Simulated scan of single mutants.
Amino acid sequence: MTDSEILAENLSRVIELPEGWQDLYRQLMLDISAIDGRARVVDTKEKFGEMRVYLKEYSELAFALIDAANARSRSICQVCAAPAVLSRTKDGFYATVCSSHSNGFLPADFSPLRHVRMVVPKADQ
């Protein structure tokens, strides 16, 4: 696949995310493509109120961009893209929502996430 085909494939996965994060994801894909055109997304989703993006091919710069976008997603409403906070229900369901979409949610006291980056060396390393 060419770099432009990989970018198009990566961009097509935007529909897997809540609408409020779709512009953030599109910009992330453009930024990653500019530094590493071979980086391919294998999964993208909402998890614990945060946008998650997983790559097959990787570079440290691509990971840094993803980490920054993940952090930014915790301040953008996943429904409408307005400024928001990471929130949770009494049952422990997390979402990043603005005041207009926070029915049943309260601001979370803490993030349920502890990020650990594990990189498995490629066979030729």
Rank of each mutant, 00 (worst) to 15 (best):
T96A: 07
E16G: 05
S100L: 11
L17M: 07
S100M: 07
G37C: 13
A82R: 12
L65C: 02
D31N: 14
R74S: 04
L7Q: 06
T89W: 10
L11Q: 15
H101M: 06
D67V: 02
S87R: 12
V79D: 12
A34S: 14
E19G: 05
F48S: 11
P18K: 09
A82D: 14
G20R: 09
G49T: 02
R40I: 02
W21R: 07
I66K: 10
L17Y: 01
V85K: 13
P83L: 01
I32F: 15
C80E: 11
R88Y: 04
R26P: 11
S87I: 01
S73D: 12
A62K: 07
G49M: 02
P18A: 01
Q27H: 15
A82K: 14
S12N: 10
I6R: 07
V97H: 04
V97I: 10
T89N: 08
S99L: 09
E60G: 01
D43M: 05
I66P: 04
M29T: 10
S33T: 11
A95M: 06
E9Q: 12
T89Y: 04
C77A: 02
Q27M: 14
R40V: 01
E60V: 00
E46M: 03
F93A: 14
V97P: 08
Q27W: 13
S87P: 03
Y58G: 03
L86D: 06
T89F: 06
A84P: 06
L65R: 10
N70C: 04
I6Q: 07
C77T: 06
T44P: 02
Y25H: 10
T89L: 10
R72I: 08
L86A: 08
A39I: 11
R13Q: 15
D67H: 08
L17G: 09
V79Y: 11
E16K: 15
A95Q: 13
P18V: 03
E50K: 10
Y94N: 12
H101A: 01
R74G: 08
I66N: 04
D23G: 03
